[in-house]
């Protein structure tokens, strides 16, 4: 059994809960920091990154989330969630949680009228992944330990760095749960191979 939380400060939370469903998965809607201890993995949903960041600070999530990542527990970030995880954000003095060695560019494809959907090849996940991009960010460069999982028109839109997984699009808005299930598998493996996690509280 693995327990996966969805950070619920703002944004599309229920959609992630639905996509994470599996017989051995328990999901938790996370609104308070004291809920983090019981989790094996965590999702940062899509929403408005500036709003989320303000609420992260306001409710004292900043350090606990960084500790969660430092403990090696898997995190999935989609769209705004990816922005929260990035080490560096274009045109901003610094990243938010700075968990993942990537540079991101916000609203990289333009305004809402330029938002789109397409089909992507995602390494180890799917050759025909339906992907919905909404005022989406992109990953403009990656560190040495980051594996690029998917690109669209030459731009990186999904990547993994060890236990951290992030994408520009919204897998939670389609019925295709393969990206989430790939993450669930990361959480299962992390829990099996790193029993010391239980000691980190």
């Amino acid at each position: 059994m693995v327990t996966i939380g969805v950070l619920a400060l703002q944004g599309a939370v229920q959609e992630h809960v639905k996509s994470l469903q599996a017989p051995d998965v328990e999901t938790v809607i996370v609104k308070r920091t004291d809920q983090l201890d019981a989790l094996d993995g965590l999702v940062f949903p899509g929403g408005e990154s500036t709003t989320m960041r303000r609420l992260v600070n306001k409710y004292g999530f900043y350090e606990p989330l960084r500790e969660f990542a430092a403990a090696g527990k898997p995190i999935l970030g989609t769209c705004a969630g990816l922005i929260l995880m990035a080490e560096r954000i274009a045109q901003e003095p610094q990243g938010h949680l700075q968990l993942m060695d990537i540079d991101v560019q916000r609203n990289a494809f333009g305004r809402q009228r330029e938002s789109f959907e397409t089909t992507l090849v995602v390494k180890d996940v799917a050759k025909d992944m339906e992907a919905v991009f909404i005022r989406a960010p992109l990953i403009s460069s990656t560190g040495d330990d980051v594996e690029v999982l998917s690109s669209f028109n030459g731009e990186i839109v999904a990547a993994r760095e060890n236990h951290l997984l992030a994408c520009s699009f919204h897998p939670e808005l389609t019925d295709d749960t393969r990206f989430h299930q790939y993450f669930v598998q990361m959480v299962r493996e992390s829990k099996e191979t790193a029993p010391e996690h239980t000691a980190v509280t």
Partner: peptide, 21 residues
């Protein structure tokens, strides 16, 4: 190929605003 202005893209934008002001 990229499709703009689909229902998923338009409704999804509102989904991202949930819980907000």
């Amino acid at each position: 190929m990229a499709d703009r202005g689909t229902d998923r893209v338009k409704r999804g934008m509102a989904e991202m605003q949930k819980g907000g002001v």
